[in-house]
Design a protein around this nucleic acid. Structure first.
Lengths: 168, 168
DNA sequence: CGCTTATTGTTGTCCTGGACAACAATTGCG
DNA sequence: CGCAATTGTTGTCCAGGACAACAATAAGCG
């Protein structure tokens, strides 16, 4: 039940000598208690992932957020913005501006829902689907690089664990 | 090896019925290939962690970045800003402004390094150490909540895995 | 020693993103 | 009908990442 300080790790500050070794050689900086904060490492990993993702999808000029938006619209044609925002955990306000840019690029359309005058039925254009196909192929490459960084075993373990926790 | 099964678009994959169920009841939105992207889940987890961390440390008014800065300074007295920035993966420019605020709050000091006139030797003030102590106690509570959300087993697994990957 | 290069901290600027409020149009429902 | 809720939109504020420029200082090298 005690989250910090599992039984696997001997009490505490002994191995804490496991500090970050700088490239300068002898200089050593201790992370101290940050070692016991999962959020710190999750953030570091997330930064790495985003940087690699952006670099890999440079050719199609899609940010992680834009990519996820296109994927979900493509898989759920006619989706409303509120549903999309709730699904991806994006704010409605931000999604509106995000879609505006994608629409100006000719990647998707907002159709007025015949049943509900407030809703926009979202769908990709042909161009959007074509770009998304290219983007998905690049995203696979990114994912492979991530798997290589983590090690295939750890990669699958993490994916399974987070899937189990976050997919309701 | 292949992390993503690139499939065409049969719109609704079979087992992909593991879609997000909206509170509205019947409406189901598919994440499609996002299920195969670790970055998506890492980001969702990171958002959750930061929100809980900020809420938990509300009393001491410390952001995750500020907290990490104080922890590392406290554990490495006399550190320079460049070293601190490199350790935490923060940009020098951003760290300068960040420290400015912490200094105005009286939590830390920049002392001129006697050996090197360019460097600032960073150290916490008494007030800073006191606040950090309170913050650490709160951070432990946050960590417990995170462990509860993930499940203690998964929590320790994730921490060990990321530690192994990201601590060089 | 002098000259050039590197490092350190700082400031400015641009842009993305999260958070929140307000609003018009539309729908749902008592 | 009349009022509350929903949807999409816009405005604003602020944290944060990225990048350039700069002065002060140090280090390397002839």
């Amino acid at each position: 039940m005690t989250p910090v300080r599992s039984r696997r790790q001997p009490a505490l500050p002994f191995r804490r000598a496991a500090a970050t070794r700088r490239s300068t050689g002898s200089a050593v900086v201790t992370l101290d208690t940050l070692h016991d904060h999962l959020g710190y490492f999750v953030r570091r990993l997330q930064v790495w992932i985003f940087q690699d993702f952006i670099r890999t999808l440079k050719r199609v000029e899609l940010s992680p957020a834009q990519f996820s938006v296109l994927v979900v619209i493509n898989a759920n044609r006619g989706l409303s913005q509120a549903e999309l925002a709730a699904t991806l955990g994006i704010e409605r306000a931000r999604l509106a501006r995000l879609l505006h840019r994608l629409q100006r690029r000719g990647l998707m359309q907002r159709l007025k829902s015949p049943a509900d005058g407030r809703r926009h039925a979202l769908q990709l254009t042909g161009e959007g689907r074509a770009l998304l196909a290219r983007a998905k192929a690049l995203a696979v490459r990114h994912e492979r690089r991530l798997s290589a960084k983590l090690g295939a075993d750890r990669y699958h373990m993490l994916l399974a664990a987070l899937h189990e926790v976050l997919v309701d």
